[in-house]
Design a protein around this nucleic acid. Structure first.
Lengths: 257, 257
DNA sequence: CGCCGAGTTGAAATTATTCAATTTATGTGG
DNA sequence: CCACATAAATTGAATAATTTCAACTCGGCG
């Protein structure tokens, strides 16, 4: 329950806390605690009042939402990621539910501690703004991905992003079960299977969680990755998060009138 | 080009500037100017570096994005709304393009002025964070709306939202051309026509920009508006914006396991 | 051995897009 | 004020994308 020094240091250096002085950091951490959760634990449901800022240190968390017996996955987070920051800032109710996908280690910071740190130290407050901006832009990318691409194109781009993150090798390992991946990509598991087989043309081979690439050029021709949609270079995938990795261009797509 | 007093006052009181002291306000406004644009003017294209924070004072602006010859509308803004705040905070390139839909009046604040105000005054910085959080949550609502509802349900909810904003009368006026509305709701104009006719069952009648309601109960039964998706109570519709209107609950939908 | 869940495959049904043809509005200039 | 040009909106039919339902495979694991 109290925070181990190593954990505090990790957060201190990897999140927006790096910009805080010790006093601010201590204020923010006031009342914070570290908690472990087993897989498939609901941390928060839609509509719940939000009392804490969550920071995922280990494991994986799915953010989702439902309506009329339908469910959708909005993002899957990997360490180090904050979540429900917006609700904390506004002291309002959660718009998304949060569920662990694996056994996870999560730092919980009382909303009031965070807000007072922000109001007390403008440099820290600005760092939080940067984090918020990164989350916002992650969402914009996600919407563009869904509205502009069909399911096969989304999968192709997902695979290229994973490949870039896993060192540009000819084989990658999918980081999630296929059903979870399907939900993240906004399709049914059946459809994901079909999308994979459509990509066999482009040199994509699948064996369980292992995906091989024998013709990346062809895959890229189909996927047409864009720096305005895909976060290739960021440490964290199709996340809502990660402020500290925005600043690259690359091949540019066409523009609109 | 210099800012008229009346305009300055309007911004001062309706946006996050209300929380700023005079000194901060003046710093932020340093180098700001007010500009008028005719309809269909591109203010910003995807990928462009962003030098200013934009605040829409009059008119309407569409935020959109494109990929591979496809275009999509992400939001339509009405006064008073800020846009591309996230890119300004991060000093990065725009992920969305911005185009005026009508003759518009827009206040442009140099990014550097805004950022230094934020770093100088934590209370102001916090107000900006609240604005960012509101924008973020607007996007979350928008994604949920698109992923959880089909086109008819989106239209039904849009109509109910408009009706609430226009005083709960039995007739409303659509604030945009139908083709613009279709883009906002994520469908083709043809499909919007069909969605309207599907709603005639539910007492919805259309005549040009006028829409009449003769059976709101039936329409609500289909639409199932939710406070976790729809911003009924906010001044500004399916916007990315508006921080200052989050704090209500209402009928709650089902929850998920 | 046999259960069970994840994954795959096929076929039908649903939802949305595209293309083409008309009709309705809107606006301009004579 | 009308006639014409142009854009917006509607409608139908054909196509495409996605979901749903059902059956079946495969690989653990008790």
């Amino acid at each position: 329950m109290p925070i181990r020094n190593a954990d505090a240091e990790r957060v201190r250096h990897t999140s927006f806390f790096r910009s805080a002085d010790d006093a601010t950091f201590n204020t923010a951490m006031n009342g914070a605690f570290l908690q472990r959760f087993p897989a498939n634990t609901t941390l928060l449901m839609e509509g719940d009042p939000v009392g804490f800022l969550y920071i995922l240190l280990e494991g994986a968390v799915e953010l989702g939402a439902g309506w009329k017996s339908k469910d959708t996955t909005l993002a899957i987070l990997r360490p180090i990621s904050t979540f429900i920051l917006a609700a904390v800032v506004l002291e309002s109710d959660a718009l998304m539910s949060a569920v662990t996908l694996e056994r996870s280690e999560i730092l919980m910071i009382p909303g009031e501690s965070l807000r007072s740190s922000m109001k007390q130290n403008p440099v820290f407050g600005f760092a939080v703004s940067e984090e918020q901006a990164g989350c916002y832009r992650g969402l914009v990318r996600s919407i563009k991905n869904h509205k502009l691409r069909d399911s096969t194109e989304r999968l192709a781009n997902y695979l290229l992003t994973q490949r870039a993150r896993q060192g540009d090798r000819d084989e990658i390992t999918l980081p999630h079960e296929k059903r979870v991946l399907a939900a993240l990509l906004g399709m049914t598991p059946e459809n994901l299977s079909r999308a994979f087989s459509k990509l066999s043309d482009k040199g994509v081979s699948v064996d369980g969680a292992h995906v091989g690439f024998s013709n990346v050029a062809a895959l890229e021709r189909l996927a047409r990755p864009s720096p305005l949609i895909d976060n290739h270079y960021s440490q964290d995938r199709n996340t809502l998060g990660k402020a500290y990795t925005e600043r690259q261009q690359g091949l540019l797509d066409q523009k609109k009138a």
